[in-house]
Write a protein that binds this DNA or RNA. Sequence first.
DNA 1: GTCTATAGATGGATAGAC
DNA 2: GTCTATCCATCTATAGAC
Lengths: 197, 197
Amino acid sequence: MRYPAGHKQEKRQELLRVSGALIKANGFSATGVDTLTQGAGVTSGSFYSHFGSKTELLKALIDNELQISREMWAGNPHDTAEEWVNFELDRYLSLGHVNHPESGCVIPALGAEIARADTSVKDLYAQELHKGVVILAKRLGSESLAWAFICQLVGALVLARAMPTTKEKKAVIGASKQFLKHALQVQSTHGHTHPPS
Amino acid sequence: MRYPAGHKQEKRQELLRVSGALIKANGFSATGVDTLTQGAGVTSGSFYSHFGSKTELLKALIDNELQISREMWAGNPHDTAEEWVNFELDRYLSLGHVNHPESGCVIPALGAEIARADTSVKDLYAQELHKGVVILAKRLGSESLAWAFICQLVGALVLARAMPTTKEKKAVIGASKQFLKHALQVQSTHGHTHPPS
DNA sequence: GTCTATAGATGGATAGAC
DNA sequence: GTCTATCCATCTATAGAC
């Protein structure tokens, strides 16, 4: 073959990486295949040797992005539930995350578009997202609390990103952070078994 | 004139109504001007006699939609803060709202796309949204709590809509509802001044 | 496997008749 | 004020050369 072994897999990963950044920043339906491939240094013809359609790319993207998010959680250095959760909370509800969707969580960036995609996309999304909920539930005490936690984070990012000024962005993520830290102390298993002082 | 007085305003309102439903259901960038005008029974040429551009329509839509949301709040029949809030919570976190974005709140449907729009759109959005936060703050005790409340609702709708099954949609909105009802009892002014029993 | 080239449809927006 | 017709760009996807 004219290309070294593993070249296709590398190009695929490169396409996923570049496409993920462009699509999270500019939206899935608003970003064309030409734009995506130009970012990765190939042409649209090459795109279709890696993905059967633009929708197939979206599925690969969701899979990749949610896996990356779980790996970030795995790198959390804290042990106790409270410290672990507060660390993630500060990481997610940060001005850097608000200002850089291209390197951030896929859910606030593409959640609404995933909701409009076909069933196969939503099936994959729900499956991968649930893996994260299971991990989070171990820290928070229940899957119900884990879902509510994620909803709060996602909503805060969606709202904050649509604010025109830094001051307003900070007000939104600050409000969510304060609310969550207080609520989790009360509602989480940890809060019940180890109340502060 | 060949058209009765007020015809233009009526057509504009009709365009706003139809476009709002189509765009909330299918996305702003994914819905073309031809589709929007066909839904209202006119052609694309007519569109540009009402709106200078598709972006101008988005602004008119945001203004209109957030006004409608505030009017819904005004129709809430309850007086006490707890009853008033629980009523809105049940209305927002319902399966009907999840399944019918075309007639629902504009924020979970278009929040991510508003975040990508130009500054004039975000300025208007923040201004109109803040009016709602002020109203909500009177019930919850602070603007900070109002922001957190809205973030939870919006995140829940975004997440629930992307779930493939009714069971999973219910799990998401149910978790958010339970979490909010508990948290607000503790954190709101009402909860502090009128603790249950 | 990637390229060029292109098909066929649709995107936003405008001109001119009525 | 709305219509038809159209411009030009971009869209998703494919065909065929290398």
